[in-house]
Amino acid sequence: MNHLGDLLSAHLDGELASHERSRVAEHLQTCDRCRRELEELASARAAVRSLPLLELPVALSTAIGARPDPIPLRRRPVAWVGAAAAAAFAVFVSAAALTAPEPREISPPQLNAVYGAVSSNEGAFTVVKVAGATAAAGGAR
């Protein structure tokens, strides 16, 4: 049996192509392993999404001439509810949540020596060419 692998994350994010949705739904009905993996992925996803949205520090806001953005980055009703949700991290999300992808509400277009683990696949991190931002690669600070 071919298991679902990364289709599970796409399922959680509502990012499956139409032809993949029925396959995923059918498979989940009969595969305990994929259901368990889906629960684990959902808990990790919920944990990251529970992180509070940070305001710009006042000094930075002043330095860049920006007032704090009044528009939420993403749909989060109440920051502490998210934190409470994270507190229940060990409690997995309901079966309904697992089988029905959460629709994206508002989706505003919105190495490890230094910051954490360095991937062995450094080739994946070539700097992207950005039209109109020729200074990007220069990195003068």
Binding site: V48, L73, Y115
Partner: peptide
């Protein structure tokens, strides 16, 4: 809990961290 999650984020390879943050923090498709 937020600190634990942040530490876990810093502990994973950067290309995975970047993708997860773009998806689950910024809300990008």
């Amino acid at each position: 809990l937020g600190e634990d999650i942040q530490k876990a984020l810093l502990d994973i390879p950067i290309e995975f961290r970047e993708a997860v943050v773009m998806c689950d923090v910024v809300g990008m498709s």
